[in-house]
Design a protein around this nucleic acid. Sequence first.
DNA 1: CTATAAAATAAGGCTAACCATAACATTTTT
DNA 2: AAAAATGTTATGGTTAGCCTTATTTTATAG
Lengths: 222, 222
Amino acid sequence: MTVRHLSESTEMYLKAMVELSDHEMVMVPRLAERLGVTPVSANEMVRRLGEQGLVSHTPYKGVNLTKKGREAAVNVLRRQRLWEVFLHDHLKIEWSHIYEYACSLEHATAPEVTEALAAFLGDPKTCPRGNPIPATDGSFKPLEGISLGELKTGDKARILAVNATATDVLQYLQERDILPGRELRVVEVAPLQGPLTLEVGSRITALGLSMAEFVIVKLIKS
Amino acid sequence: MTVRHLSESTEMYLKAMVELSDHEMVMVPRLAERLGVTPVSANEMVRRLGEQGLVSHTPYKGVNLTKKGREAAVNVLRRQRLWEVFLHDHLKIEWSHIYEYACSLEHATAPEVTEALAAFLGDPKTCPRGNPIPATDGSFKPLEGISLGELKTGDKARILAVNATATDVLQYLQERDILPGRELRVVEVAPLQGPLTLEVGSRITALGLSMAEFVIVKLIKS
DNA sequence: CTATAAAATAAGGCTAACCATAACATTTTT
DNA sequence: AAAAATGTTATGGTTAGCCTTATTTTATAG
Ligand SMILES: [Mn+2]
Ligand SMILES: [Mn+2]
Ligand SMILES: [Mn+2]
Ligand SMILES: [Mn+2]
């Protein structure tokens, strides 16, 4: 019954599932990509997670989290985002590095430490990448935003969150001032999956579609 | 040349070696006890550590750290003790739990995080268990104290450090106010490895020899 | 110097996560 | 309906860390 200690790998699979698509089914090869393993390895792991009652897999349809799995996953998210706040606000670690470091610490954090950290930080509601921090009971309101990649030429929007995880991608975005809170305007959308041209604070930047997928925005004016 | 990422297990073996006896040789079965593994497993691990140039093992004489191994070990100590300070002073985690929690976090802490944490904490010199915190370059002055088990009846001493690691042992000591900074007097030393009777702050406590070994004191008056 | 205790090694096993390569099943596209 | 693309499974590996049981080697105490 009690959720005994889950391995780092297990926690990363579960977290990847909420990050990729909360509640919807995820194809196993998508999980594999996100986690940097082969589809065969991801299938093996999904079988193990299934045996532990953390996920359910319908072949050719996808995997999703069970109640138990989702609880564990959301708890990992909580730990990760609390550490992100600490690393950013208190340790003054560079924004583009905090995800990576928090992603290590999250697996080494006991419940008592998690709750003490939350209290120390003043129960923050948002992490530096713009995402909501789940409460102790697992509740959190997902962002009501759309991907930057869905905007059309001329649209104006405010950046809500940046969901990239790779440090180099985060650094690339940080250098271009594509950060939570910033406002932007879509100057042009190139055809054929081409790049977006953006104006962010009087600065013009081109951004590939795959990177734009990571940026969650709220439309201000279309 | 560069010390790439060492596994948690590797770091724990190295740390155990400095904790058990800095610079002196350690018998492999002593390491095994400290780490809670069988002597066979410890021997296997020592072989692997030897292959990586972290330790050198002379059969029937003992193991010791190489320069490279000691550097890595001391760095683990630094991380551990910095986290202990954070957990104790900022998160207000109960004293008897901080070793255990810091012992998880230490392996998940990148150099940049370690240094930022040290700066945040104001470069503390001592951890809540009384031990010195090694500097970035690995330097630290070991405590010049003796084990509480070496005291004689009538001796007065001040507790410098408590080197226990098991949470239940730490809790036992905490309950009896056997903490760094406290002063005590040895009321009686029972013969045949028997317990010590101590007076700690007007309170009389009996303490087994094996626990007394964990307590490092400075003799005030004999 | 020999008996005993302690340390080490040999041998065989286990599990969690990974890998590659190949075969197979299903869905999607044409 | 067939072809192509995608997802899954089968098979056989690897590595790090653990385990047990049995044997061998060395140190040490009498
Ligand atoms: Mn992680
Ligand atoms: Mn540890
Ligand atoms: Mn073997
Ligand atoms: Mn197999």
